[in-house]
């Protein structure tokens, strides 16, 4: 179905006339993005790796420290704690966001009245930035929890679920749009054929709809996974890691995730800046590794029509 739709475009691109000039001019069109990519990503990234081997005050005042920063980072109990907290948030939010998003998308492709309005409304939270969203929800949570004489920052369980609620609220709408696109590409013919063969709704969902929308599931799990791992704004605004406990001679912030931990390390004092940098490099390797693994795992389940 999808291919059918895109065929005319492909045909146009394949014509000799356009292809030749594209081959000649594509570097020019890629250039702005490529330059932006270098300035905004590639160069800082390489410099970041380089810096992680130094103890530095500013970018022109540094001493080589070898692997010291990495050893210090591994020995930091708060980093380990932040890792597990991140993993917990990632697992729970991936499951919940995708379940809700799929359910909403499924409901809104059943042809109910006002589906377009619902789609817009569900998508809207995604347009609000993380910090603003965090503050809004902070007020809501404070108002609700006041009745129970407690607050988000006082209890790590509340802090955890508060974060999950905000993440779901923000991301369900976005993932919903992707799922709707996937669901709309499910062939009516196949569903009709299955019905004639005696399949019930569950069979259709399990054996036709799900395999067909697998590409959407891949994209959505990938996005939710990386979103959860990279999460910073909401974590900072909602609890800033509180409550704190002392453990293994370190201050452990129980709701602190990796990105916030890296930020806190970096700003502690200048001797820890390199350690923060080393943590950031490890963080990148971790997120890239998990994402690649997850991509290849879900890709293998996709079906081509």
């Amino acid at each position: 179905m999808r291919k059918k739709k895109t065929r005319p475009v492909h045909a146009g691109l394949n014509s000799q006339l356009i292809r030749r000039s594209m081959q000649r001019w594509f570097p020019l069109f890629l250039l702005p993005t490529f330059i932006a990519f270098c300035i905004g990503f590639l160069w800082p990234f390489l410099q970041g790796i380089y810096l992680s081997f130094f103890q530095f005050k500013t970018l022109d005042n540094m001493n080589f420290a070898g692997l010291q920063n990495y050893l210090k980072a591994f020995g930091d109990a708060s980093f380990v704690s932040a890792f597990w907290q991140t993993a917990k948030v990632a697992v729970v939010s991936i499951i919940l966001i995708n379940l809700f998003a799929f359910a909403v998308a499924y409901a809104l492709t059943r042809g109910i009245r006002g589906a377009n309005l619902f789609r817009s409304v569900f998508f809207m939270p995604n347009l609000i930035g993380g910090i603003v969203l965090g503050y809004i929800w902070n007020t809501i949570f404070a108002g609700v929890l006041r009745g129970y004489n407690t607050a988000l920052a006082l209890n790590s369980t509340l802090g955890f679920w508060g974060l999950i609620i905000v993440l779901c609220w923000q991301q369900v709408g976005y993932m919903m749009i992707i799922y709707i696109a996937g669901l709309q590409s499910v062939s009516e013919d196949m569903i009709e054929a299955a019905r004639i063969d005696g399949a019930n709704s569950w069979h259709v969902l399990r054996h036709i709809t799900l395999p067909t929308v697998m590409p959407s599931i891949t994209i959505c799990t990938f996005l939710t996974l990386t979103n959860s791992f990279k999460l910073f704004d909401q974590n900072l605004v909602l609890t800033n890691g509180a409550p704190m406990v002392f453990d293994a001679g370190q201050q452990i912030y129980t709701t602190e995730m990796l990105a916030l931990n890296i930020y806190r390390t970096f700003t502690m004092n200048w001797k820890w800046q390199g350690v923060g940098q080393a943590k950031a490099v490890m963080f990148f390797i971790l997120v890239a590794g998990i994402s690649l693994f997850q991509l290849s795992a879900t890709r293998s389940r996709e079906v081509q029509q």
């Binding site: 004489n149 407690t150 607050a151 920052a153 006082l154 800033n240 890691g241 509180a242 409550p243 704190m244 201050q251 912030y253 806190r264 700003t267 502690m268 004092n269």
Partner: peptide
């Protein structure tokens, strides 16, 4: 590490104030 020390104290005082 004044900021880190104060952050710890703030967290504990908040906790104490709420019971």
């Amino acid at each position: 590490n004044v900021d880190a020390w104060r952050a710890g104290v703030v967290a504990a005082m908040t906790q104490y104030s709420a019971g």
